[in-house]
């Protein structure tokens, strides 16, 4: 029943034997201890488990790990370089966009993919695109401001994309 999968996680090649019923989130957390991706609902409604698969955000709680075979995965752990934080992470800190922090990794990953695709996203576009990431603490205002801040930097061309 078990399957061998090989994929790239945060730049490192990984080979694992997985049960078909394991979701990608289950493998990232329980088998690789990449606990930055969170489970908030397990049903694709809250976005806390968001990771990038081949550069696109997906709910890792809905994707079977076997389906990640051959893919390139980026989790929150792969975003900062050593102690150098990604501009989005810096902006989240500076703008006060983090309260309990449980939704934050998913928020940052969705925001990253959004800005990769649309570097000068408007507030309205940010709100629409990030609707799949629920937050119960912030009311979203400061999260949107943080993403906008980075969008502004990208527009100004003074930011090296991480």
């Amino acid at each position: 029943m078990n399957k061998n999968i090989t994929f790239t996680v945060n730049g490192e090649p990984v080979s694992l034997t997985v049960e078909p019923r394991w979701t990608l989130l289950r493998v990232l957390r329980d088998k690789m201890f990449l606990t930055g991706s969170k489970e908030g609902c397990g049903e694709g409604e809250c976005g806390s488990c968001t990771v990038l698969v081949d550069g696109k955000p997906v709910n890792s709680c809905l994707m079977l790990a076997v389906a990640a075979d051959g893919k390139t995965i980026t989790t929150i752990e792969g975003l900062s370089r050593g102690t150098e934080l990604h501009p989005l992470q810096k902006a989240f800190i500076e703008k006060g966009a983090i309260q309990c922090g449980f939704c934050t990794p998913g928020m940052v990953m969705t925001a990253k993919s959004l800005l990769d695709k649309n570097p000068d996203a408007s507030a309205e576009e940010i709100r629409q695109e990030m609707a799949g990431n629920l937050c119960r603490c912030t009311g979203y205002t400061k999260i949107v401001e943080a993403v906008q801040e980075v969008a502004g930097q990208l527009k100004g061309g003074c930011h090296e994309n991480g």
């Binding site: 694709g44 976005g47 696109k56 955000p57 997906v58 709910n59 969705t110 959004l114 990030m130």
Partner: peptide, 9 residues
């Protein structure tokens, strides 16, 4: 439909 994350799956 759903979210950006869902539409990518």
């Amino acid at each position: 439909i759903g979210s950006a994350q869902v539409r990518n799956l």
